[in-house]
């Protein structure tokens, strides 16, 4: 089966890869590009652990084909921090104990960062509905929501 050559950008880096047409963007990120931050929790777009941004919009990378990203821009959890400086969301998630096992965390961070860029002052309800596609089984979401609200407040103050 012939493979498809794809040129794209991941976290600002130019990237090329070959993939089978059936491979998902998640497969490509993890198995071909060594970016294992995005996780496969379901493979059906129901858990959000594989969330990445595609041209700035949050998507499930398990529901995007590798072949589809030719010429697009991908953002993953590995690209959220700037050098050694964590993004405020990353810092607040640690401070608020907003992760237990941490496997949903990359997807939640990617999704939340996109939310705060779009809506710097979300209500608790807005955060909860925005994150409804990011399943967390450990925390009951309480501390996640608090971390997001606190980050939003800090970012608003800083801007």
């Amino acid at each position: 089966m012939s493979k498809i050559h794809v040129t794209t950008s991941v976290n600002g880096d130019a990237v090329e890869f070959l993939c089978d047409p059936r491979e998902t963007l998640l497969d490509v990120l993890r198995d071909r590009l060594g970016l294992t931050g995005a996780k496969e929790g379901c493979g059906t777009g129901d858990c959000g652990a594989c969330s990445v941004t595609l041209d700035g919009r949050v998507v499930c990378s398990c529901l995007v084909l590798g072949a589809e990203v030719e010429g697009h821009e991908i953002g993953t959890v590995e690209g959220i921090a700037t050098g050694e400086e964590l993004h405020p969301l990353q810092r607040k998630f640690i401070e608020h104990a907003a992760l237990q096992c941490g496997v949903c965390t990359p997807g939640i961070l990617v999704a939340t960062k996109a939310l705060l860029e779009k809506n710097p002052d979300p209500t608790e309800t807005e955060v909860r509905y925005w994150l409804a596609g990011n399943l967390c089984r450990c925390t009951g979401y309480d501390k996640i929501i608090r971390a997001v609200m606190d980050t939003a407040a800090e970012l608003r103050e800083a801007s």
Partner: peptide, 9 residues
């Protein structure tokens, strides 16, 4: 239809 992520697609 679906989540934020699904809405993006």
């Amino acid at each position: 239809v679906g989540s934020t992520q699904i809405q993006g697609r």
